[in-house]
Amino acid sequence: MSIINLGYLEYEELAAIQKLPTKERYEKGPVAVIECIQEIPCNPCEAACKFGAIEIGEPITNLPTLALDKCTGCGICVSKCSGLAIFVINKVYSETTATVAFPYEYFPVPVVGQDVEAVDRKGEVVCKGKIVKVMNPISFDHTPVVTVEIPKEFADEVRSIKRGEA
């Protein structure tokens, strides 16, 4: 499995382990994608979702499952996951673009309107993007959640942006 041998997850492997949102759910608006695929004792995401959409239960090594109908795509869980492994994808942001909300703990944190280069799980630039939202309230405990707008076809690949010069 490439995550163990190479450090990054191939989309097919993620889809095989986690129940990803259906095409119908994506058409309704933003939704969380939880890229957590190893059994580790860990459950802050469960408590983080105020809509009760994430479930882990006992034992806490269970992988989180997402109730698609309860998830509103608010993005709070993105900041609460200690592994920085949750993303919010909106495949219907516009006719041609989608957005990906991701955790970003590097300086400098991008600003709204900034043009960026979007990268995939391997860290390779796949397309250009524009920052449309940056959330960094105190409750996120220094894990800013950045939303980047990208061409729709890259929504399943883009998971971060190329870092700026510190």
Partner: peptide, 11 residues
């Protein structure tokens, strides 16, 4: 030469 960490998102 300044090797201080001058900017940090968490610290």
């Amino acid at each position: 030469m300044c090797m201080r960490v001058e900017n940090h998102v968490i610290l």
